[in-house]
Each structure stands twice: as structure tokens, then as C-alpha cells.
Amino acid sequence: MGPINYRERWENIISENKRAIMLLEQNNYDEAFSLFKKLARETPSVQSLNNLAWIMLREEENRDEARALLEQLLVLNPKSSFPYMLLGEIALHNKQYDEAKHYLLQALSYRETEEATYNLAMAHFQLGEFEQAAKVFSRCDGDSGITQLHEVVSWLYAGHIDKAKTLLAKWNDEADDYTGAIEIADVYIELSCYKKARAQFEKEWNSYYISPYCVSRYAYTLWQLEDYDACRAIIQQAIQQNKEEQMDEQQRELEEHWTAQDRDECINELTEQHHTLETLWRSLENGYVPPFDYDMYPNGGCQLFGCTQHGHPEYEEVTRGEIR
């Protein structure tokens, strides 16, 4: 009797879908991708089409192909939040916010998840439904993180200034998911709390990458506080830093991944930033108010049927009612 081939026996026990996920977790991407495609082609089902769509979205960054796969499985009447979560996320990326809200509400009707809740709040925000966005963001986990800052900004845009200020007043800079003082300062400016904004800027200014946007917002804050010397000093500091960056880029050695074209594009961008900084003082004198630039990005997560790492059963187990 020959030796027992445990690997062969194990592969006969687990499903092909779980084997594909194991290959993915072991960084055997090409083999995993090939198996996911084979399963979707030979046995198209809610599970195989959803999992391939997830791969197309997360790994291949092909939203169109992912969406086509998900729309194909919708005719199978999936009884899981996963395909609807993915469709909602794709719609957010495509700025189709009504469609995103539709799919995310369907996802949440099956299962309350952090990702779907966050993305639904983002859809409300982008549709101008700011109060509803704030309420949905408030259902998300976290302490003084970016999600809570989204809630603050949502209350601000909804006209509930006192609620926004109250939330910021409770901010915990010792929290694990603390957003960062510069981001907090930026929101305080919109609340016309310039002293508080300045205090936040000062916390991180010398340890933060100083972009022209941040410089303009900090300089505006100091201008509003009529501290013109400090305002001019901040601008001059940024101009000097920009000059040093240009010099560093000019002296940087060219290589395969840093060509002369890359260098020239970088220097051109730095030159444009230099001009913006050089004219900032005069712009402030003329009443310039740097616009608030606030972005939100969809939340991702794992929506793979059969992913043991995240405790997701295969679709057949979902439909038997083991989870919803």
C-alpha cells in the first residue's frame, strides 16, 4: 500500500470554489483567477458569477466586466447581500448615485454590514440628502475616524451646525482610527471656528506633507485671525519647500521606473504649484476664499462566497438559511 496523498484527498473534499479561494490566499493568483473563470464559464451560478465579479473588481480593476457578471446573475434572484453590495459599490464609482442607493438598500435588506451602511450613507450624501447621510453614517462603527468626519460634514451641509460642532468637540485624538488634525482643521474652517482650526493645524504642520491646498487653507485661517505675519511665514515656508522639491527632482537619477518624461511632468507640476503659492498672498488680499475640497470614497471589503478568512459560507449554505 503506497503513501497517502493528503493533498489529493483534501482537494477531493473541498469544493472547487474554496480551492480557488485558497489559491488566492496563497498568492497563486494566476491559478486562482483561471479557476474562478472556469467555474463561472462551466457552471454559472450566483456563487461562481459573484466571486468572479469580485475578482474582476478588486484584482483586475475592471468595473465594466464585474458589473456585466453581476447583472447576469440577477436573473437568478440571488438571496444574499453580496451581489447587491458589489453593484452598489460599482455604481458609486460610476457616480450613479440613485442606482447605488437602490442596490445598497437591497443589500441591507438581507444583512446589515458596515460596508453597505457606509456606502449607502455616501450615496445619500452625493444626492444632496445630507441629513439622511448623517444619520446613516452615525450607524457605522468607529471613534473619531473618517466615517465620523463624514457625519460631521453631512450635518454641516444639512444646516445642523450645532450638531456638527458638538461632534467635533468630542473628538478623541487617542482613538485607534483617529482621522488627523489637518483634516479636522479643514472642517473647522467651514464652521468659521478659526481659532480651533489654527490649533489643529499647529498639531501636525511640521510633520505633514504640505500641499498647496493645505497651505491655502491654513493661510486663509491665519488671515481671518488677522495674524498676517504668521500667514506670510506659512506661505514662505511652503515656497521654500517647493524650491527644494524641484531641486531634488532635477538631481534625481533616472531609471527604468523614473524616466525623463516622469521627471519633467513632476517638475512642471511643482512649477505650477510654485506659481499658486507665489500669488496666494495677493489673492488673500483680494478676498480669495480657498474652496473646501472634501472627498468620499466607496468602502470595499470581502464579498466572496466561501471565504473562511472572513467567515463567509458558500452560497448553498446561505440559501439553506444558515445565515442571511
Rank of each mutant, 00 (worst) to 15 (best):
V152K: 01
I13T: 10
G2K: 13
T166D: 14
D262P: 05
G2Y: 09
N5G: 08
T319F: 03
A185R: 00
T276I: 10
T147D: 10
Q241C: 07
A121H: 02
F305T: 12
T113H: 01
E151L: 03
L39F: 03
S216W: 01
M22W: 10
L76S: 07
L24A: 15
G180V: 05
Y218C: 14
I239D: 00
F33P: 10
Q224L: 08
Y97C: 12
D143K: 14
Y228E: 12
Y209V: 08
E269C: 09
Q106G: 02
E71V: 09
I184E: 04
D173F: 12
T221N: 15
G2C: 10
E89T: 13
D177P: 01
Q47H: 03
F82A: 10
V187W: 00
E255M: 07
A66G: 04
I210M: 07
Q251C: 05
S207V: 11
N62A: 07
L280N: 00
T43H: 13
K163H: 04
Y220P: 00
E314M: 06
G287D: 08
Y194M: 07
G88Q: 05
L120W: 03
A169S: 12
L35R: 04
Y297D: 05
Q224P: 06
G2F: 11
H93P: 08
L191R: 01
Y294V: 05
L222Q: 02
S283F: 05
N268I: 12
E316W: 09
S109H: 13
Y297F: 12
T179S: 11
L69G: 05
N286I: 06
A175E: 01
N5T: 13
G301C: 02
E278A: 04
F292R: 03
N77L: 14
E253Q: 11
K37R: 13
K135M: 15
L120A: 00
D177Q: 05
Y213L: 12
E59Y: 13
S48C: 04
E129A: 08
A233G: 02
